[in-house]
Nucleic acid binder design. Structure first.
Lengths: 340, 340
DNA sequence: CTGAAAGCGCTTACAG
DNA sequence: CTGAAAGCGCTTACAG
């Protein structure tokens, strides 16, 4: 395997000069650089990142911690991060935190604690103090996208406002019996994404002077089957059926639409449904939703990481530092005015 | 940052002994090992993988090349790979090949060619000769899961047989006007996964002595919206409407069911639909399908990689080496006998 | 069973 | 603008 010494010999220079020529750091005569580059190309030289990392302390590798790969939102974020990292010349090392205790500890205490990654992006994970500490002790920059915990740089939509907006949309259409399909543990974890959306729902109902019917709040897995199952409960009850439903994600909303179909409840005539995400299927299911832009969010997270690592224009301020990430209400055919 | 020298000093041994004690390689007195381990724990020592890689030539890192993250099949495979790699103590470096030419070349010629990964798993990618060469020249073991090209270890279902089985299921229900929603470029690329499924479809029709109506074969994006759009074409024609449809993936099949609903065509009474994959939504949509097991496939690919790298029990033969990966026909409510 | 030494492949002051 | 030397943090023969 060709090493830099081989390139140097072939080009008739020292290893130091070869290194400078190839990396672009330090002064090298134009002609010398040309010779070195030609030599490198000739023998197919590619620098060993390990050796370089060892001396520079930089790995050009970012760890991404994510609880799911196979949920639309997370998949989009991951793709956005990957694309941005790749074009910055960085690698992405993936840690899929499927919530399992021991493995999760291993990721933070071993995998991420080593000097293999320059920084960590945590997507939608509720970090414990211990986990954040483990990273801080190793001086790893940490960027959080959504989730909770972690004192470090955080990028997030305002999930309470999202829940409120979705609910207000239904209220303004005249609905008064509005259900909420919340994420699992939303009530128990008020700081989580799902907890915040639930809070926004409750706030909107309350500020309209209405009572919240607790039977109309059901927690379910944030997935299409979860939404389906949850909605069956909500819609199956003979007397308490809502006229509108705010689902905490588009996947849940689509599941709910499916459940309504199964029960012979017509959407939107008998049931308005709104979701959150801007899922790629939303248009096909004619679903009203509060869109967010996960691919873009991933790109932004990488921007922040690059800044923390001192790459690129350090002068660039963080874009709207601290401001919530953009969202937008997109009204489609799944919501309409309350039946009367 | 604590280095092995610090551990050695604290334990009162040499770096060599500390290294042996921590790695478990070579002889170390039990008592010495205990002292070293205590010292390492005390100062929170974690070995630098870069330094170790430099001398051992092993990175304990595997590159995964995958064309999508956000398709169910690929997401499942990725999760399966990640889990297996993590439990083997390996890292996963993700390269998402979104088909773009220049970036794709960069992945193979630069990222994967460096000494950062010990091996490469290519999931569902049609590799060019050049790409395989680039890896071979660097002596990187390559394991292919599906896809085509690449002389190396390959794990795959028998996609032709899958297409044939799905079509035969419909034929045996008495259908004679059977459509196929194929993947994009299926006809142009007979060696691709989608090309093979198409071939299986054609073979099944032909062996029943029926003519293939080319108008009933439509290529579309292998996704839910793709299936929806493709099915609208297929089902919208007043005279040529099929009574059964074989979709090349469950996502396409679900899109097709949605399209049928939109057109007021009842499934399965007027249209039987079968897909491929065993998608997590299949049960909810009551979809008949030929299941495959992507999570398990990912795990298997890691098994093979570990063998190629000489990890674990080398003696273990490859499981059913060369045999196609398992699939299974699961009949649900979306298929029924032909209307007469 | 343990230690001194060499070396993995780079980059970076430091001289010149 | 270029080179000799040191060193990043490990592991691995080689002696003992």
């Amino acid at each position: 395997m060709a090493a830099i010494g081989d390139v140097a010999r072939l080009a008739g220079v020292s290893k130091a000069t070869a290194s400078r020529a190839l990396s672009g750091r330090g002064y090298v005569a134009v002609e010398t650089r040309r010779r070195v580059e030609a030599a490198a190309a000739e023998i197919g030289y590619i620098a060993s990142p390990d050796a370089a990392s060892l001396v520079t302390g930089r790995t050009k590798n970012v760890g991404v911690v994510i609880p799911f790969v196979n949920r639309w939102f997370f998949g989009e974020v991951l793709e956005g991060i990957e694309r941005a990292l790749l074009s910055a010349g960085y690698d992405l090392t993936l840690y899929n935190l499927a919530g399992r205790g021991a493995e999760r500890a291993r990721v933070f205490d071993f995998f991420l604690a080593r000097k293999r990654v320059d920084a960590v992006i945590a997507v939608g994970v509720d970090l414990t103090g211990h986990e954040v500490d483990a990273l801080e002790r190793r001086e790893k920059p940490l960027v959080c996208l959504g989730g909770s915990g972690g004192a470090a740089a955080r990028l997030a939509v305002d999930d309470r406002a999202v829940g409120q907006l979705a609910t207000e949309h239904l209220l303004h259409l005249g609905h008064t019996r509005i259900a909420h399909l919340a994420g699992l543990d939303a009530a128990a974890r008020p700081d989580s994404v799902q907890g915040r959306r639930l809070q926004g729902f409750l706030d909107a109902i309350a500020s309209e002077g209405l009572e919240v019917d607790r039977a109309l709040v059901v927690e379910a897995d944030v997935s299409l089957p979860g939404g389906y199952t949850g909605a069956l409960q909500l819609l199956g009850h003979p007397r308490r059926r809502p006229t509108a439903l705010f689902a905490a994600s588009d996947e849940m909303a689509i599941g709910a639409i499916r459940a309504a179909e199964r029960l012979g409840i017509s959407v939107p005539a008998e049931l308005s449904v709104i979701g959150v995400d801007g899922h790629e299927y939303a248009e096909m299911f004619d679903l009203t939703t509060v869109e967010q832009y996960p691919g873009e969010q991933g790109r932004l997270a990488v921007d922040v990481v690059m800044r923390l690592l001192g790459e690129g224009a350090l002068a660039d301020p963080l874009p709207d530092s601290g401001a919530p990430l953009p969202t937008r209400l997109v009204v489609r055919g799944s919501t309409t005015s309350a039946p009367r």
